[in-house]
Every structure is written in structure tokens, then in C-alpha cells.
Design a binder for these strands. Structure first.
Length: 423
RNA sequence: GGUGAGGUGACUGAGUGGCCGAAAGUAACAGUUUGCUAAACUGUCGUACGGGUAACUGUACCGAGGGUUCGAAUCCCUCCCUCACCGCCA
């Protein structure tokens, strides 16, 4: 959620930045300011009224103590009037506040000025390209056929147990999953991240804090009896650790990493996008989260991006880095890089990581602040990124590394796997 | 799930209707003292939203929400959570 004060003080910038998302925000921003004005007025009215009431109450107390009961009773009548009026003012204030909040909730984060304008994924900016596509003698098999051939992943079995999009990993397929998780976690720890194992069910407040609610409840699985949601990403529980927290400046930056399964309903997806591992309802992901001083958050973003790239390099995958255009960026992000690996048999790029700076969009909702050395409290910047999401990594590892003898595993994984080849 | 006891500032903990935004202690920060460390002493030490150039000042907040009252941290109701015991159990 954007901050009202920021919008007031940076009206032009807000309009300019939201325009990157193709949002004509002038009118809505005027409305925000207008509503904020009337909020202030109403609050002042209410405060003054309550102040008057407080003075009278104290006076009544004094009169009672000095035995002047009839005078006290007279004053009581006055306070009753005040009480009634203040109730009315309070309602009006709440009404205005809620209206303002609803309005602010419709506004996505203001993109950084570095974000390219654009509407569709085609307009994302390719900022880097690493590695070369593998060369094959024969037409390579797509990963779902390889998975079947080597008995690594059983999609039909998952349908039996749960439904489509819940694959069962078996044998070396399961071991590959476990190896990747451990590899990613160990790498992150070496980078200075602290490993976290959070709950994978979250309450409403947490879902609101990171921006899943309101609006995106359709994307999450919901445990109705307890009103919990299954996490769509570890970002939610790990960032919410710091909800309603005031950090010390010396605590920053905070670097956390966590492995969790992730659950997404993916309502409305269909067709070849969902084939094999391309889009699942349950998948595994290692997520990195940083809480940063506002002054350095873009340096942190670059650091995170390079870290994710280093993982892909170690796995020997060809990949590219996209800077998302305004139209393709998530609601809560100010700047997002996507990493995509090349999937040789499908001949397409698969998104395996998304690294974003949310600036104060999340921290404003989370009330996540830090106390500056001069004693002032300000909102921190939050950032996160996948490092990495497993299924598409597995897909491209299988497809890109297939040989006549079997699927050759990258060197870095061998200590984790305990085998070198899937055959 | 049942019964009982509780939820107060970073922490410990006092406060059972007005003098309480809240004692005291600890921790933290600044200073004095000091050869250094430590100790001692002095001061500062909640958040949010307002008003004011500022000094300063108004309002709200003692788990959350409602209620009683002129007045609630304090009384009542509902919910949530924590602890103890019992039950169940990886």
C-alpha cells in the first residue's frame, strides 16, 4: 500500500511512476488527497470534542469529591450531548478512513523510474543472457517424457492421490528434489542468509501484510474451518515475522532464506502451459528475503539478482535476465527481475526466479519500521526472490542434460545426490 | 478437547473506577567521574494520527472487539492467545 504522506508530498512523481504501469492516476491521487484532507478535518473536530468531554469529566470528578452533587449532575447532561455527537463524528471518521484505505488498496506499487514502460511480456527488457543452448544429435525429449522413461516423476499417481498439478517424485527424481533444496539452502547460508523454517499455513493478517489479501484469495488454498491459507510462497510467512516490528538501524540488513512447499490454485490456467512441471499446484521453492535500509535497497536488489544468477551458472543452465516492464510487474513490486532458463526440448524460456524490490509497499502494510540513529522511525524496504523454484529447474536440467547414456547431473549437485547420472 | 490462572511499555513487574500513558527495576542511549575495563551518579528512554515556524500541544492506544459509566488498564460480555493440570497423540 502506498503511503498517503508520500503521495501528498510527491504527487507528480507518483503520477509519473504509476504511468509506467499504464495507470492514469491523476484523478485517483487527487481523490486520495481530498479524502485525506477531510480525514484530517474530521479528526480535528473529533479530537476537540473529546478534549472538551475530558475536561468536563475531570470537573465532574472534582465536584463530586467536594460534595457538590447537583452541580455535577448538571454537567453530566452536557457530557451526554458531547458523547452523542462524538459517536457520530467517530462514525464519520471511520467512514472516511475506510474509504481512503479502500482507495489506496486499489493502487498498485509505484514502479521505480528504472522500470521500462510497456504492457505485455514481450516488452520486458532483456538485460543479460548467459550460457549456450545445448546441442543434440537427435530431437531431445520433453521432460515429462524423460520423467516417465526414467521413472522420476509420476503425474498420474498425483492425480489419484490429490488431483492434477500434484506430482509424485520417485527414486532419483525425489533425490534430485532433495539435493536441489539442500544445495540452494547451503549456497544461501554461505551468502550470509539465515535459514528459517516457517509455518506453511498463514492467517489473514499475514496474507494481508504481504499483499495476497484482499483480492488474491482465489489464488490460495483456504482451510475454511480455521480460516488459514496455504502459503503461495515462503515470502509470506518469512516477511510476516517482522509484522508490527520496529527494528534498530543496526539490525539491517536482515537476510533470511527458507525452503517451503508452495501452493497455488492457478485458477484459469490451461493448455500446454500446465504440461508436466511447467505449472503446478504444489511445488518446492527456496526463497530469499531481505529487509533493507531504504537508502540501499536497490543495491541489495542487484546483489540478490547476481546471487540468483550465480546459482544458475553453477547448475550450468542457459538463462536470461529480464527487467519486467510496468505492465507485466506484480501488483506489489517496484522493480522486478525475472530469471528464465532455457528448456531445450520445449524450446522456450521458463521463469525460475523473480527478484523484486517492494520498497515500502509491504512494510507500510506490515508496519515494519526501523529506528534511525537520530531516533526517527521510518519504514524499511522489503525485497525477496526465488533462489530457486524447483520444478522448472528440474524440467530444464532433464531436457538440457539428456544424452544417449542418460541424464548427466551437474557437478555441484553430485555430492548432494550421491549419483552422477540418471539412467 | 476439558478445567483453572493469566495477557500492562524492549524485558521483569506494580496498578481493582477520576490524581494513570501508566510506579519501580532491568536493559538501551547520552553525559559526569575514571589510567583502562567495571562500578557509581545524572539525564533521555512507547506508538499512531492531528494542531503549531517552533517551544509546545490535542486525541487515541494497557491482547482484539463490543458494553456499562459523566469518567475504564481497572467493572461486564464475546473472541484470540499464553501458562498449568487432565485427556489425546507424531
Amino acid at each position: 500500500m502506498l503511503q498517503t504522506a508520500w503521495i501528498r508530498e510527491n504527487k507528480e512523481e507518483a503520477i509519473q511512476r504509476l504511468a509506467i504501469r499504464n495507470i492514469e492516476a491523476g484523478e485517483i491521487i487527487e481523490r486520495v488527497i481530498q479524502m485525506d484532507d477531510s480525514r484530517k478535518n474530521k479528526q480535528l473536530e473529533l479530537d476537540n470534542l473529546l478534549a472538551e468531554g475530558n475536561i468536563l469529566s475531570k470537573e465532574i470528578g472534582r465536584l463530586f469529591q467536594s460534595g457538590k452533587k447537583s452541580e455535577a449532575d448538571q454537567l453530566k447532561n452536557k457530557t451526554l450531548e458531547i458523547k452523542e455527537l462524538s459517536k457520530q463524528f467517530e462514525e464519520e471518521l471511520h467512514h472516511i478512513e475506510n474509504g481512503l484505505k479502500d482507495l489506496l488498496l486499489t493502487l498498485p506499487n509505484a514502479p521505480s523510474l528504472k522500470v521500462p514502460k510497456g504492457k505485455t511480456p514481450e516488452e520486458n527488457e532483456i538485460v543479460a543472457l548467459h550460457g549456450k543452448p545445448p546441442v543434440f544429435e537427435n530431437q531431445p525429449l520433453p521432460h515429462w517424457e524423460l520423467a516417465k522413461k526414467y521413472d522420476l516423476i509420476d503425474f498420474e499417481l498425483g492425480v489419484k492421490i490429490t488431483g492434477a498439478g500434484f506430482p509424485v517424485y520417485k527414486g532419483k527424481g525425489a533425490r534430485l528434489q532433495r539435493a536441489l533444496i539442500n544445495f540452494f539452502l547451503d549456497q544461501a547460508i554461505r551468502q550470509g542468509y539465515t535459514e528459517i523454517q516457517p509455518p506453511i499455513l498463514i492467517n489473514e493478517d499475514s496474507a494481508f501484510g504481504t499483499g495476497q489479501l484482499p483480492d488474491k484469495e482465489g489464488q490460495m488454498y483456504h482451510a475454511r474451518d480455521d480460516n488459514f491459507y496455504l502459503i503461495p510462497t515462503a515470502e509470506v510467512p518469512i516477511t510476516n515475522i517482522y509484522r508490527d516490528v520496529i527494528l534498530k538501524e543496526s539490525d539491517l540488513p536482515i537476510k533470511n532464506v527458507g525452503y517451503t512447499p508452495c501452493f497455488r490454485r492457478e485458477a484459469g490456467s490451461y493448455g500446454k502451459d500446465v504440461r508436466g512441471l511447467n505449472r503446478l499446484h504444489q511445488f518446492d521453492k527456496v526463497e530469499i528475503v531481505q529487509i533493507s535500509h531504504p537508502d540501499t535497497s536497490y543495491e541489495v536488489l542487484e546483489e540478490m539478482r547476481h546471487y540468483v544468477c550465480s546459482l544458475l551458472e553453477k547448475l550450468g543452465l542457459q538463462f536470461r535476465v529480464l527487467k519486467l516492464c510496468g505492465g507485466d510487474m506484480g501488483f506489489t513490486s517496484a522493480l522486478t527481475y525475472d530469471m528464465e532458463v532455457y528448456s531445450a526440448a520445449q524450446e522456450k524460456w521458463l521463469e525460475v526466479s523473480s527478484v523484486s524490490n517492494f520498497e515500502t509497499f509491504q512494510s507500510n502494510r506490515l508496519k515494519l519500521r526501523f529506528k534511525e540513529n537520530q531516533g526517527k522511525t521510518s519504514l524499511v524496504h522489503t525485497l525477496n526472490g526465488s533462489a530457486l523454484a524447483l520444478p522448472r529447474i528440474v524440467a530444464s536440467l532433464l531436457e538440457n542434460n539428456q544424452t544417449a547414456k542418460g541424464i548427466v547431473m551437474p557437478e555441484v549437485l553430485i555430492p548432494y545426490l550421491g549419483f552422477e547420472i540418471i539412467d
